[in-house]
Design a protein around this nucleic acid. Sequence first.
DNA 1: ATTATATACATTGACAGGCGAGGTATATCG
DNA 2: CGATATACCTCGCCTGTCAATGTATATAAT
Lengths: 109, 109
Amino acid sequence: MSITSDTLRGHTDAIILTRLLAGDSYGYAINKGVQECTGGAHSFKEATLYTAFRRLEENGLIRSYWGDEGSGARRRYYAITAEGRQACRQHVEEWESTKHLLDAMLSDA
Amino acid sequence: MSITSDTLRGHTDAIILTRLLAGDSYGYAINKGVQECTGGAHSFKEATLYTAFRRLEENGLIRSYWGDEGSGARRRYYAITAEGRQACRQHVEEWESTKHLLDAMLSDA
DNA sequence: ATTATATACATTGACAGGCGAGGTATATCG
DNA sequence: CGATATACCTCGCCTGTCAATGTATATAAT
């Protein structure tokens, strides 16, 4: 059973940015990483993923460049920018407080 | 500083249902309750709130009826149904796992 | 050779939830 | 009489997700 994507909405960008903190990567690998770190419970739909990349780049939070693989399918690599790091930190902070708020709002007190 | 509503999206219905677990209530009061239990950090926009009520009733998770206040503005009361309780429990369960997943996905491991 | 599977990227159009902006009505306080 | 709080409602826009569809390379199986 996977997670309702509505509850993940709004976290997509931050999840991707977090993945890029460790170093440049490309779409397919990033998604595999997400899959791995959630024990297979979540991965992005391709449309969602690539839409997010466009959005993030438009907002200056990532940069992209084509890799120079000798063989195999081409890969577009992404690098997080300084602004991206900042945005990521901020989102994680916000997540911490959202978490507590939601815990409060979803508890039958 | 309030919470980005995108990160709350998908929780709206469950938050309302949770509020109704304690007993029947009406829109304005429900929203006040949310405000209170979050220390003022969150409350629903009216459009969001009433849209949610319609949706919840369509889905059979709540029932509604007009109160018989002798004076003052009329109030439409809402009652959670058995299905609503079930849906609420399920959402809270899902929230627990989503929370852990997000913690994992937002941690720079 | 052909088929299947994994890797890898991309776009289009539909859909759903949140909400700004606007509206209605009652009661109280100054 | 006007302001504020209570109390409800709807229309139409915006944004993020995703099913469907398309392209291309490499490998393993049939």
